[in-house]
């Protein structure tokens, strides 16, 4: 398994990370090492086995359609890096 620098840069874009050149090199090597190791999952005797998305046997866990108002609305905005009229402020987005 070979990981290319270009792939790492593409993945960084998807993950919204801005990597420095030396980080790209390092992560390319790291990813290659780790993926080569992780590749053993492809040798595991799993033919015909279903996927376990979790270990939980629960299903149909639903909530009633009843309104509960979160009491401390102010606390939800207290961590905003920048806000204006109770909204989160960001650079202009052209839609």
């Amino acid at each position: 398994m070979k990981v290319s620098k270009e792939e790492v840069m593409h993945i960084a874009k998807l993950a919204n990370l801005n990597l420095r050149d030396e980080e790209i090199d390092k992560f390319t090597t790291n990813l290659e090492d780790i993926l080569n190791f992780a590749d053993i999952v492809n040798n595991a005797p799993v033919e015909g086995l279903t996927e376990s998305f979790g270990v939980n046997e629960n299903y149909n866990v639903f909530r009633k359609d009843e309104i509960k108002v979160f009491e401390d609305n102010e606390a939800l905005l207290q961590n905003a890096p920048e806000k204006d009229r109770n909204m989160f402020k960001i650079p202009k987005v052209i839609q």
């Binding site: 990981v3 792939e7 993945i11 998807l14 993950a15 990813l31 993926l35 992780a38 999952v41 492809n42 595991a44 005797p45 799993v46 086995l49 279903t50 996927e51 376990s52 998305f53 270990v55």
Partner: peptide, 22 residues
């Protein structure tokens, strides 16, 4: 992000979930 990205999902993520069953 890599293991979920298109083209690698089946080889890694899906396999890993099967391993989980195993």
């Amino acid at each position: 992000t890599y293991v979920l990205s298109s083209g690698y999902y089946d080889a890694y993520y899906k396999k890993a979930q099967q391993v989980r069953t195993l």
